[in-house]
């Protein structure tokens, strides 16, 4: 197994403890946010349906930490973590889930369509693979105008079987645009395991980059430092004009596909083991030797922040029903 530095081709750069502690805090914020929305959904307060990213916090935090504010992302149906990590305040995301005007999409989007253009979030997408071609176009615009920015698409292993994935990878490499394709490989396409939807072993899914002659960088998606360094390397590659990168992050969905998913398709013991050995927050906490007292202090602050977000959202403004027509046309 290569070292983090080798895998990430980062030239051996280290990540300071202060930065790792910052990552820990953000990942725990995402976790507490996700747990809270599960709770509020079950209480019947949230319309629609939700996909939470419990277990995948390190990919969101590690990738977005390596991006500049002016870099753009396209997210997926499992979007809350990406939105938090790219810089949208949790109360605006929570308000969106409650369908309020104060939400990051003003109540028009919901969980699967979180947008925040100011911080470079071009939107979460409810169509698997739907956001990838747009990221190629954004990267093309940056390249044509000579701007030092990258465009980043998040997607899962299931999306690598869609036509848009193949067309986007092909076009991005052909035109050597500064795009990063972030493959959050959790080994599940909703309820269908890798063995039933991928012709390659799940760990080898990065090989798909070779078909397009694209640069592949891989990292352990449960190791936030590795993800961060790998993204830095990918960004450098793209900004140097060398073309796009497939950033393959092996991660683990430690929960159901959607909130309320009974996961009848999943082995209970395996899931239990994954929860014990693959939790990225627990792994980082152990590495940083965060003790019980310190953890409770941080956790207390983040829990209060999420609780405040709920209060903010509940006190928010309901959109006027007839405003459903407001943004159909520019």
């Amino acid at each position: 197994m290569a070292t983090v530095e080798e895998r990430a081709e980062s030239g051996g750069r280290g990540v300071s403890e202060a930065m790792l502690r910052g990552f820990f805090r953000e990942m725990l914020l995402i976790r507490r946010f996700e747990e809270k929305v599960e709770d509020r959904f079950r209480a019947g307060e949230l319309p629609g349906f939700l996909h939470v990213a419990i277990g995948q916090e390190a990919t969101a935090t590690g990738v977005c930490a390596a991006l500049a504010r002016e870099d753009v992302i396209a997210s997926t149906h499992r979007a809350h973590g990406h939105a938090i990590a790219k810089g949208t305040p949790v109360e605006r995301i929570m308000a969106e889930l409650y369908g309020k005007v104060e939400g990051c999409s003003k109540g028009y989007g919901g969980s699967m369509h979180l947008y925040d253009v100011e911080v470079g979030n071009l939107g979460a997408n409810a169509v698997v693979g739907g956001g990838l071609p747009g990221i190629v176009g954004a990267a093309l615009a940056f390249k044509m105008r000579g701007e030092k920015r990258v465009a980043v698409a998040f997607f899962g292993d299931g999306a690598t079987n869609t036509g848009t994935f193949h067309e986007s990878m092909n076009l991005a490499q052909l035109w050597t645009v500064p795009a990063i394709f972030v493959l959050e490989n959790n080994g599940w396409a909703e309820s269908t395991p890798a063995s039933q939807q991928l012709p390659l072993p799940v760990e080898e899914l990065g090989k798909r980059a070779a078909a397009y002659g694209m640069k592949l960088i891989e990292a352990d998606g449960q190791d936030v430092e590795a993800v961060y360094l790998a993204t830095l390397a990918a960004r450098e590659h793209a900004l140097a004009g060398k073309g796009p990168v497939l950033l393959h992050l092996r991660t683990h969905r430690l929960t159901g596909h959607f909130v309320g998913d009974p996961q009848v398709y999943r082995d209970k013991d395996e899931l239990k083991e994954e929860r014990e050995t693959k939790d990225p927050i627990r792994l980082l906490g152990a590495r940083l030797e965060i003790g019980e007292d310190e953890f409770s202090t941080i956790d207390g602050e983040l829990t209060a922040e999420v609780e405040a977000a709920v209060e903010f959202a509940k006190a928010g403004t309901d959109p006027k029903p007839e405003d459903a027509l407001k943004y159909v046309y520019a």
Binding site: P133, G134, G137, A138, A139, A141, S168, N170, L171
Partner: peptide, 20 residues
């Protein structure tokens, strides 16, 4: 472009959102 109608329209969308 390659024969990729999804990517032709989709990359047009992405570039348009960025002000092209």
């Amino acid at each position: 472009t390659p024969i990729s109608e999804m990517a032709i329209v989709g990359s047009g969308i992405g570039a348009a959102i960025q002000g092209m």
